[in-house]
Amino acid sequence: MLKEYKKIYVLIAIARLVEEGKKNISTRELSKVIGVSHQSASRYLKELEKEKLIETVISSKGRLIKLTSKGVDQIKLHVGSILSTINKVYVTHVFTGKVFTGLGEGAYYISRKPYFEQFYNKLGFYPYVGTLNLKIESYMDQLLLAEKMAKPPIIIHGFSNHERTFGDVYCYPVVIGDKYDGAIVRALRTIYDNSVVEIISKYNLRKELSLKDGDRVTFLFKTLAIEKAP
């Protein structure tokens, strides 16, 4: 029998795909989103359909999935419980992320002089030219992270030069590895989804913490930001 937390996780994943405009969701597509095999996803769906939380239709594209009103009610019920938990723990929550190598775009953008000077003026340090990229794997951490980053950020304002326009960057001060001050940076245009954070610091964090791809590192939000987003 499917455990309750897995049931809600799958229902929320389906709801998220619908919100993104997916009218027909295949089992294979869902399996990629929730990170399980096609066979496991099929088993989950059978149990959800048995409880009348979803409806499925077999088509030329495979099994297509749709939430029922009962399924939507289940999501609403559990989201309320999740938010209650978030309100209790998010202030001091320690996040864990898995290190991975990005595409190097962070170093390019950070080094632009108009950004660079604002980092110093607003965050109190000139950043090492490069970001520490972390994948947030825990579902609860992802929910707590979204709650944190819904707060007003410190804004590094965009600018234009003769070549192109650079957008605003939102910053959230953090402490990494219980020792190093830094900030999560999030561009308004990014190739990453919300489960990825890019962190800057005046230190080369990979070197200081002896990190390699696949290692896990913790971080803690320091304070709420001081400048409101427009």
Rank of each mutant, 00 (worst) to 15 (best):
G158E: 12
I12D: 12
K6S: 11
T68L: 01
G130K: 04
S111K: 15
T101G: 04
V79A: 00
T56I: 05
P114V: 05
D73Y: 08
E198P: 08
I155P: 02
I12K: 15
D73Q: 13
F219M: 06
Q142E: 10
G214R: 11
Q118A: 05
I191H: 12
V18L: 07
I54G: 14
T56Y: 03
F95W: 01
K135F: 14
Q74K: 13
I176N: 07
F125Q: 12
S201N: 12
V89D: 11
G106H: 09
K179P: 13
N87F: 08
K179T: 14
Y5V: 12
N161Q: 08
R28L: 13
F219Q: 01
L83H: 12
T131H: 04
V129F: 06
V89C: 06
K22Y: 15
I154D: 13
A13V: 09
A107D: 07
I191Y: 14
E147T: 05
Y9H: 06
M1T: 13
S40N: 15
I8S: 05
S210N: 14
S42E: 12
I184K: 02
E163I: 13
K151H: 10
S31V: 13
E55R: 10
I8P: 12
V175E: 10
I184A: 06
L211C: 05
S40F: 11
R112G: 02
C171W: 03
L77F: 12
R189T: 12
V217M: 02
D168S: 06
M149A: 01
E227N: 00
V185F: 07
E137L: 04
V99C: 04
L53W: 13
E227Q: 08
I14H: 07
L11Q: 06
D193C: 04
A107Y: 00
S160Y: 02
T218D: 08
D193M: 03
L123G: 14
L30V: 03
Y120M: 03
A229V: 00
G124H: 09
E117H: 07
G35Q: 08
R206E: 15
K7N: 09
Y203D: 15
N121E: 15
S210P: 00
K61F: 07
D193I: 03
E208M: 06
R43Y: 11
L11D: 11
S42Y: 14
P230V: 00
Y115Q: 03
I199H: 05
F219K: 01
V196Q: 01
E55A: 13
L224P: 10
F116S: 01
V36E: 08
V196C: 02
Y109E: 05
N121I: 04
E137H: 00
K52R: 15
R43E: 11
Y180R: 01
Y108R: 11
E117P: 03
I199S: 12
R206L: 11
H93M: 04
P114E: 07
L145D: 08
S59K: 11
T68K: 02
F159L: 09
D193F: 00
H157C: 01
D193V: 11
K46A: 08
K113A: 03
E55Y: 15
L103T: 10
G102L: 05
K22L: 05
K3C: 00
S26G: 15
K76V: 08
G21A: 06
K70R: 09
K23C: 09
V57S: 13
R164A: 12
A41G: 14
L188H: 02
F125N: 09
V91A: 08
Y9S: 13
V94F: 01
K61Y: 05
S42P: 03
F221H: 07
Q74T: 00
V10A: 10
